[in-house]
């Protein structure tokens, strides 16, 4: 408790308005990949409002961006639970199709991604689609960096397994 109190006493000042100016688009895209277009704006707004409420508790242990996306991740999880929704992979695929460059591999990958476990989906999207490093993912979902590495390795093994089985059909 004392450690917590001391940490809080050294809280870092955080300007959420500037964060929103800088990271709004990235957070919106991040949310889109998790809750879909319909809820992305709501989730993003909720993320920044939560950040505003908790700005005083930001201790600077991690980067402000990582902290912000951690909040976004929790907000999306909470919204998905309430709406009982899965990842909007079909929306992502649809967007791919609308872009006029239909990619067969991407379609097959989307299907494979649907079949892997939620933990594997999470690290794949965080790393490959959102572009976060292993360390950032580790801080965001509060697991060791080695676990992120291992989880990604196994996620890719699972993806390849599903892709190969589809090819065999």
């Amino acid at each position: 408790m004392l450690t917590q109190m001391l940490r809080r006493s050294t809280a870092v000042h955080l300007d959420v308005e500037t964060l929103a100016e800088t990271h709004y688009d990235a957070v919106w895209r991040f949310c889109f990949r998790r809750v879909g277009r319909e809820l992305a704006a709501d989730a993003t707004q909720e993320t920044f409002l939560t950040a505003l409420r908790r700005a005083s508790s930001f201790r600077g242990d991690s980067d402000a961006k990582t902290w912000l996306f951690g909040i976004a991740l929790n907000t999306c999880r909470s919204l998905s639970r309430k709406q009982t929704r899965d990842l909007p992979l079909d929306e992502i695929l649809e967007l791919q199709a609308q872009s006029g460059t239909p990619n067969l591999s991407a379609m097959r990958l989307t299907q494979a991604l649907k079949k892997v476990s939620p933990e594997h989906q999470e690290v794949v999207i965080l790393h490959e689609l959102d572009g976060f490093s292993y360390l950032e993912i580790a801080q965001m979902i509060e697991i060791p960096e080695g676990t992120v590495k291992s989880r990604l390795h196994h996620a890719f093994l699972a993806l390849r397994r599903h892709l190969n089985s589809e090819e065999d059909l």
Binding site: W28, A41, Q45, L95, Q96, E128
Partner: peptide, 10 residues
Amino acid sequence: SLSATPEPTG
């Protein structure tokens, strides 16, 4: 290739 998203709004 799956990382494409629409333009953010709001």
